[in-house]
Design a protein around this nucleic acid. Structure first.
Lengths: 149, 149
DNA sequence: GGGTAAAAATTGTATATACAATAATTGTTG
DNA sequence: CAACAATTATTGTATATACAATTTTTACCC
């Protein structure tokens, strides 16, 4: 559906204003669908993001600051996100012996399990993005990267 | 900068997975720049969104439910957002006389003032989106609309 | 017209985010 | 090596979001 209908706004001051609203709105839409599919697995989108970062670096441990700088939303609080995941037994935290300031995080077997189960459903979620063609996806990625400068 | 560098991820499972991450990441980036420019004016991006909706319908009053369905993020709580704006004197709330279930909202003169002041700075904010050309902006809007189906 | 359903908004509660302040540890330098 | 600066993480606090439960008012229907 057109953005104009979605938020009932007839026109925008410029194509660039519309870009701003469109990116924000599409992101909100996408976050919602993502939250809904993750909910049965007991994790939020940001927790999922952290788990994937940890799986990506596995078996290498990675410190909290490194988790933060790989996160989609840099302003979420990695300490608290990781603590939530630890309470669920999905990640392990250990103080680094060489540098006791830092805390090394890793994904547990249970964390891997949860991700595997989500993986199996991922294709159908990604399918909801296939209203556009692959070449449009490429073009979209190119323009978004350029937008951020 | 490329998304890969921004979140330090070398590759994505597919162009469509990358679209999902790219939209979310770009939105987070945009929200942040927006929050920063609005902060000196004492309002948050969602409050700004509500004020603009009210200015758009002015002088016609509009009820809370209507505000919600025009919002970028439908899940934010219009009651509380409007209450915040009311406390700052930027909007007026009044129970509708014909239908006492509904609450009609309107923007105040002070609300208009705040928006005017923000308007004056908006061009420089929108300029940060002009890394892309106008035709790329059009294409971006077209693809995002199509993406949402 | 009385009972039930629907519409509209508010409230409650748990969780998440923004951002500043603090604490703990290590690095640096005179 | 002592003092100070930098790094890394945690905590505090106000605000915002998600979502369910509740309240108030109106509409419907037998």
């Amino acid at each position: 559906m057109s953005l104009e209908q979605d938020i009932k706004q007839e026109k925008f001051e410029s194509e660039f204003h519309k870009v701003a609203v469109n990116v924000l709105f599409t992101s909100s839409w996408l976050s919602n669908t993502n939250a809904v599919r993750l909910k049965p697995h007991g994790i939020t989108p940001e927790q999922y993001n952290v788990l994937r970062i940890l799986r990506g670096s596995h078996p290498k441990l990675i410190m909290l600051a490194e988790v933060t700088c790989r996160m989609i939303d840099k302003s979420s609080n990695a300490t608290r996100l990781v603590e939530k995941l630890r309470q669920k037994g999905l990640v392990k935290r250990e103080t680094c012996v060489n540098n006791r300031r830092q805390v090394d995080i890793s994904i547990t077997a249970k964390g891997h399990d949860v991700l595997s189960r989500i993986d199996k459903e991922s294709e159908s979620w990604v399918a909801t993005l296939k209203n556009i063609s692959k070449s449009e996806a490429l073009e979209l990625n190119r323009i978004l990267d350029k937008l951020r400068g």
